[in-house]
Amino acid sequence: KQVQVGDEKYTFDTPEEARKFAEKVAKEKNLKVTEKNGNFHVE
């Protein structure tokens, strides 16, 4: 599963790991997490 933050992409083995990372980054940057096709976008 992938997490996209701006132009950066991070790959994780499980959706749970990806979601945790996305939520942590979103909180730090005051952004929101959206899920698209099983991948997460922080925007």
Rank of each mutant, 00 (worst) to 15 (best):
E16G: 07
A22F: 04
K20E: 12
D7A: 12
K9E: 07
D13V: 07
G6L: 09
Y10V: 03
Q4K: 08
K32L: 10
V25Q: 06
A18D: 00
V42M: 06
K9H: 12
K27H: 10
D7M: 12
E8N: 12
K9Y: 13
D7Q: 13
T14I: 04
A22D: 00
V5S: 03
V42I: 09
K20C: 11
E17A: 10
F21C: 04
K1Q: 08
D13Q: 10
P15Y: 15
A22I: 03
E23I: 09
K1P: 14
F21Y: 07
K29V: 05
N37S: 05
E8L: 14
G6Q: 05
L31C: 12
D13G: 10
E16I: 05
V42E: 02
A26C: 06
T14H: 05
N37K: 05
H41N: 07
T14W: 03
N39I: 15
D7K: 12
E17Y: 01
K9D: 04
K20L: 13
T11F: 14
V33C: 10
R19H: 05
D13A: 13
E35F: 14
K9L: 15
E16M: 06
K1T: 15
Q2I: 15
E43C: 13
V3Q: 01
D7H: 13
E28R: 07
Q2V: 15
E23H: 10
G6I: 05
Q4T: 14
N37L: 06
Q2F: 15
R19I: 05
K24T: 09
F12A: 01
E16K: 05
G38Q: 04
K36Y: 12
V42T: 04
Q4I: 15
N39K: 09
F21T: 00
A26Q: 02
T34E: 06
F12L: 02
D7W: 11
F40E: 03
K20A: 14
D7N: 13
V42G: 03
F21W: 08
F12H: 00
T14Y: 04
L31W: 14
K20Q: 12
K27D: 07
V3C: 04
Q2Y: 15
E17S: 06
K32A: 09
Q4P: 01
L31K: 05
V25L: 12
T14M: 04
K20W: 10
T11N: 09
D7E: 11
T34G: 05
K24Q: 12
E23R: 05
G6K: 04
K24H: 08
V3S: 01
K36Q: 09
F21E: 00
T11Q: 10
E16Q: 08
Y10L: 04
T34I: 14
D13N: 12
F40H: 03
R19C: 08
K29Q: 13
N39E: 11
V5F: 10
K32M: 11
T11R: 08
Y10K: 02
R19L: 08
E23D: 09
N30F: 07
E8Q: 14
N37H: 07
R19Y: 07
K32W: 10
D7R: 12
A18H: 00
V42Y: 02
E35K: 09
F12G: 00
F40N: 02
K32I: 14
V25H: 05
E35W: 11
T34Q: 07
N37W: 06
G38I: 01
T11D: 08
R19D: 00
V5K: 02
R19A: 05
F21D: 00
G6C: 12
V42S: 03
F40D: 03
K32S: 11
K9C: 15
E28A: 10
A22N: 00
K27L: 12
K29M: 14
P15S: 13
V25G: 00
Y10M: 04
K20V: 10
K27S: 11
N30P: 02
A18S: 01
G6Y: 07
Y10G: 01
E16C: 11
E35S: 07
N30I: 04
E28C: 14
F12W: 01
K29P: 04
N37V: 02
K36H: 12
E43I: 13
V3A: 02
K36W: 11
K9R: 13
E8G: 05
K32R: 11
V42L: 13
V42A: 04
A26F: 03
T11A: 08
T34L: 10
K9I: 15
E8F: 13
H41F: 15
V33W: 08
E35T: 10
K36N: 09
N30C: 12
K36V: 13
K24F: 09
H41Q: 10
A18G: 01
F12E: 00
K29I: 05
K20H: 10
T34K: 08
